Simulated assay, not measured.
Amino acid sequence: MSTITRLSAADFRDNVKELADLLVDVVDGGFSLGFLEPFDQDAAVAWWETREPAIADGSLIVWAAHGPDGIAGTVSLALESKPNGRHRAEIVKLMVHRDARGQGLGRELLATAERAAASAGAILLLLDTATGSPAEGLYLAAGWTRFGIVPGYAADPAGRLEDGSFFYKQLA
């Protein structure tokens, strides 16, 4: 069982290495999340470190699911800062370690981010994922609506172009 916690800026700094381990595992497992092979620990740490200013200013919220062997999953919520878009937010970088998949952790992380978005005043959430990925099933089961597919939207870790599915969810 994992415990999901919101990472403060200080907590985030203390967890960057484990977040990087998770990111490397997910990319090595075939999910690009914006990254191409070869992708190593140093690149993952460097990417996570670029998130620190947004976490510090509150525009990005990151949760980590701590399991017995370290961080088993994470999800982030990007809050919109544009005056005409403060009613919406974006779910980004939902990741579950290969060893922790199929146990409901992805659903739990997603629900955590959705509740926080509602608490922050967001009434509309957006996200994108690779078409045909296991994540699509998760989002559909969680009440998200696919509103489009863009052909060749992003490359997988090996550099092959994949279609991208775009989803929204309206919060009560």
Score class of each variant (00 low, 15 high):
V27T: 03
G159N: 08
L109V: 04
A10E: 15
E162K: 15
L161W: 10
A46C: 06
L126I: 09
F166K: 06
H87M: 05
G164I: 03
E52Y: 13
D25F: 05
E108T: 11
V96A: 12
D42T: 14
R88H: 07
A54V: 07
R13F: 02
S32R: 01
R86K: 12
L126M: 13
I71T: 01
A142I: 06
H97I: 07
S76W: 07
A20P: 00
E49S: 14
T50K: 09
P68H: 12
E114V: 14
R160K: 15
F147K: 11
V96H: 11
L60G: 02
L77E: 03
E108C: 09
S133M: 11
S8I: 03
G152P: 06
T5K: 11
L19E: 01
I91D: 01
L22T: 00
R86P: 02
D42G: 12
H66A: 12
R51D: 02
A54I: 10
A54F: 14
P134C: 10
Q103Y: 08
S81G: 13
P134M: 11
A46H: 06
V26S: 01
A135W: 07
P53T: 05
S165I: 05
L77Q: 04
P83W: 10
L171K: 01
S8Y: 04
A155F: 05
R146E: 15
T3M: 09
G85A: 14
E49M: 12
D11F: 00
A135M: 08
I71D: 02
G34D: 02
G148V: 11
D57S: 12
L127F: 04
A155C: 14
Q103V: 08
A113R: 03
D128E: 10
A43Y: 06
L138G: 07
D163K: 09
G73F: 06
V27M: 04
A56G: 11
V150N: 11
D42W: 06
V96C: 12
V24E: 01
V62H: 06
L125K: 04
L33P: 04
G148Q: 12
A172F: 09
A116K: 14
G106W: 04
F166C: 08
V26W: 02
I71C: 02
R107D: 15
S76M: 15
I149N: 14
Q170K: 13
L125N: 04
K169F: 01
I55Q: 01
A116Y: 12
K93L: 11
T50P: 03
A20D: 02
K169V: 01
A142Q: 14
R146T: 13
M95N: 09
P68F: 06
G67F: 04
P134A: 10
P83R: 13
L127Q: 02
I91T: 03
D99K: 13
D99V: 08
L127P: 00
N15D: 10
L161T: 12
L7Q: 00
A154F: 09
L109I: 04
G30K: 06
S133E: 14
R115D: 13
V16N: 00
W144S: 05
K82Q: 11
A65W: 00
R88S: 10
D11K: 02
R107M: 14
D128A: 05
R6C: 07
T145N: 13
V92M: 13
A10H: 12
